[in-house]
Amino acid sequence: MTIRDLYGASRSGPFVLAGPCVIESREITLRTATALAAVASRLALPLVFKSSFDKANRTAVTSFRGPGMEEGLAILAEVKDETGLPIVTDIHSPEQAARVAEVADVLQIPAFLCRQTDLLVAAAKTGCIVNIKKGQFLAPWDMKNAVDKVRASGNEHIWLTERGSTYGYNNLVVDMRAIPEMRKFDVPVIFDATHSVQLPGGLGAASGGQREYVPVLASAAVAAGADGIFLETHPDPDTALCDGPNSLPLDRVELLLRRLKAIWELADA
Rank of each mutant, 00 (worst) to 15 (best):
M69V: 09
L107D: 06
A146D: 10
A111S: 15
S63R: 07
M176S: 06
F64M: 03
Y169H: 11
P140A: 02
N131S: 05
A111P: 01
L107I: 07
G154M: 08
D148E: 15
L172A: 06
P86A: 04
L73M: 10
V88Q: 03
V174I: 15
P110R: 15
L119Q: 12
N131R: 02
V61W: 00
W159S: 04
I132N: 12
L120C: 13
G135L: 01
K133M: 06
V147F: 01
T59R: 09
L119H: 12
S153P: 03
R99W: 03
N57Y: 04
R65H: 04
N131C: 03
D105V: 12
I132Q: 07
R115N: 13
A139W: 00
P140N: 02
T117R: 10
L85C: 07
L113R: 04
R65F: 08
N170S: 14
A124D: 13
A101V: 01
E102K: 04
N155S: 13
N131K: 01
A178F: 05
K134G: 02
K134C: 02
S165L: 05
A139N: 10
E78G: 02
C128P: 09
V147P: 06
L85R: 02
V173D: 13
A178H: 08
S93W: 00
W159M: 06
K144P: 03
R115W: 09
C128L: 07
D118Q: 11
P140G: 02
I158T: 05
A152R: 10
M176E: 09
G135W: 05
Q96W: 10
R65L: 05
F64Y: 15
V173L: 14
G66C: 11
A139E: 10
A104P: 11
P110K: 11
T117D: 12
A77V: 03
E162C: 05
K133E: 01
D142W: 10
V61E: 00
W159I: 04
T166Y: 05
K144Q: 15
Q108G: 11
T62A: 15
V147E: 05
V147I: 10
E181S: 03
G168I: 13
L113K: 00
T126P: 15
W141R: 02
F137I: 08
N145D: 13
R99L: 12
V106P: 04
L85H: 02
Q96A: 15
L73W: 05
G168R: 09
D148V: 05
F137Y: 14
E78L: 05
